[in-house]
Design a protein around this nucleic acid. Structure first.
Length: 399
DNA sequence: CCTTGCGGGTGTC
DNA sequence: GACACCCGCAAGG
C-alpha cells in the first residue's frame, strides 16, 4: 500500500540512517529518543507501520488529529494514547455517482452517533449505508499511538488501512453544517423570510411559492453558508497539515530529513483470527436500487473515483508518500465535496498544485500564532486558497 | 449534538 | 499480561 512511501523512505535512507537510533524506538519503550534533530510534518493520513516524531508545538499532533476516523481506545496506559480506526462508511448499494465516484463517508466517532449515522441513507442513492470496518492490523483495526514526551510527540501507527479513506473531518463537519443549514433554511422558513423581504421592499405579498423545493433550488444565502463553512476552515485556518510541503521536511535542517527507517519490526500481534464478524449488521437492501433522484441529502460527500481495472481505489491511488495525493487520482474527484458535479465544475483555483508530497486535504487548522506558518510557506497559502475555493465550489453548487 | 480523552470493567488469547 | 472492546463520564466546541 505504501509502496510510494517506501520509495520515499528509500530515497532518504541515507539521511535517515544517520538517525538510525532515532527511528528505532517503539512507542512502548520506556525511554524514547530525547535528542531529535528534526521533527516531522504532521501527517494526516498515516498508514502502514510508520512512526513520526512531531514537535510538541504542533497543534495537530497535540490534538492527535488524523483524517482517518480514529476512535479512542482504552489501553489502560495513561501515558500512551491509543486510537483505533473505525473504517469508512460506504453505500451498501455500492452506488456510484454519475462520474463514477464512490461514497466514502466518515464514520462518526461516537458509538451512538455512529449507530445513528448508519440508520441514515446514502446521500447519493438513498440506499442503506454500511460501515466498512478497518481490519488492517491482523484482522483488527489499525491502531495509532500517541505519546507526549518532553518537547516531542511520538506517533506510531500499526497496521495498514484496508479500506478507502473516509471524508475528512472538515468535510464531514461541512456536510453536517450544510444539512443543518438545509433544515434551518427549509423552504418554509425561506418562504417566510422572502415574504418578509418582499413585504419590506414592496409591501406586497408574494403569492405562489413552492413549499417543497428541490434541495439545490433552495436559496441558501451564500454569505451565511460561506461563513458557516469558512468558520471551520478559514477562521481558524491551521493548515499545518495542509501539506503544500513535503512531509518529512518539517525543519529546514541541513542534514536532510530523517525518515522512516524500516528498522523497527516489532512482532505484530497477529494472534488469532479476527473475532467473529465485527461488521455491524446492515439493513436489508431495497428491492430496487433507488435512483439518484431520490437523493434528498444535501451533502458534501467524499467520493472517490472508480478504481481502474476493478481495484480498490484506495489501493491504486497511493502517491509516493502514501497519501494518495498523486498519481492517477483526479484531485478533483478526490477532493471536491459534492456529488453529481460534472468534472468541468472544478474549483477555479483547482486543487493544490501539489506535485508529489502534497496532500489533498486541508482540513486541519493552522496554529494560532503563526508559529508554524513559516514552515508551510507558500504551500499553506496555496492550500488555504484551495480550501476556500473548495468551499466556494460547494457553495456554488448550493445555489 | 458531536468529538475527544479518561478510566473502570470484561472477555479472549 | 497484552489486547480489543464495551460502557459511562466529563470537558469542550
Amino acid at each position: 500500500m505504501l509502496k510510494g512511501a517506501d520509495d520515499s523512505v528509500m530515497e532518504q535512507e541515507d539521511s535517515a540512517s544517520q538517525h538510525g537510533e532515532m527511528m528505532s524506538w517503539d512507542i512502548n519503550d520506556i525511554k524514547l529518543p530525547q535528542h531529535v534533530s528534526q521533527t516531522d510534518w504532521f501527517q494526516e493520513w498515516p498508514d502502514s507501520y510508520v512512526k513520526h516524531i512531531y514537535s510538541s508545538e504542533d497543534k495537530n499532533a497535540q490534538r492527535h488529529h488524523s483524517s482517518w476516523a480514529m476512535r479512542n481506545t482504552n489501553n489502560h496506559n495513561s501515558r500512551i494514547l491509543k486510537k483505533s480506526c473505525l473504517g469508512v462508511v460506504v453505500c451498501d448499494n455500492n452506488c456510484s455517482t454519475l462520474d463514477g465516484r464512490k461514497i466514502y463517508l466518515r464514520p462518526a466517532i461516537c458509538d451512538k452517533a455512529r449507530q445513528k449515522q448508519q440508520r441514515k441513507c446514502c446521500p447519493n442513492c438513498n440506499g442503506p449505508l454500511r460501515l466498512l470496518s478497518c481490519r488492517g492490523h491482523g484482522g483488527y483495526p489499525v491502531t495509532n499511538f500517541w505519546r507526549h514526551e518532553g518537547q516531542f510527540i511520538f506517533f506510531q501507527s500499526k497496521g495498514a488501512h484496508d479500506h478507502p479513506r473516509p471524508e475528512t473531518k472538515l468535510e464531514a463537519e461541512a456536510r453536517r453544517s450544510i444539512q443543518k443549514a438545509k433544515t434551518a433554511f427549509s423552504p418554509s422558513s425561506l418562504r417566510l423570510k422572502r415574504i418578509q423581504e418582499i413585504e419590506s421592499l414592496t409591501g406586497a405579498v408574494p403569492t405562489q411559492e413552492p413549499l417543497l423545493l428541490p434541495i439545490r433550488d433552495v436559496h441558501m444565502p451564500p454569505a451565511i453558508l460561506r461563513g458557516m463553512l469558512l468558520s471551520k476552515s478559514s477562521q481558524k485556518p491551521m493548515l499545518s497539515s495542509c501539506s503544500g510541503h513535503l512531509p518529512y521536511l518539517r525543519t529546514a535542517g541541513e542534514d536532510g530529513a530523517s525518515r522512516e527507517a524500516p528498522t523497527w519490526s516489532r512482532s505484530l500481534s497477529l494472534r488469532g483470527t479476527p473475532r467473529a464478524e465485527r461488521l455491524r449488521s446492515v439493513p436489508a437492501l431495497p428491492s430496487t436500487a433507488p435512483s439518484p433522484q431520490q437523493c434528498t441529502h444535501l451533502s458534501t460527500q467524499h467520493v472517490l473515483p472508480m478504481a481502474e481495472g476493478g481495484h480498490d481505489p484506495f489501493r491504486s491511488d497511493t502517491g509516493p508518500l502514501g497519501d494518495g495525493s498523486c498519481g492517477k487520482q483526479s484531485p478533483l474527484a478526490y477532493r471536491d465535496a459534492c456529488l453529481c458535479v460534472p468534472p468541468q465544475a472544478a474549483p477555479q483555483g483547482g486543487p493544490c498544485p501539489m506535485a508529489s508530497g502534497a496532500q489533498p486535504h486541508t482540513q486541519l487548522s493552522l496554529p494560532p500564532r503563526g508559529s508554524q506558518g513559516d514552515r508551510g510557506g507558500g504551500g499553506h497559502q496555496v492550500c488555504l486558497k484551495y480550501c476556500n475555493n473548495d468551499v466556494f465550489f460547494n457553495l456554488n453548487l448550493l445555489q
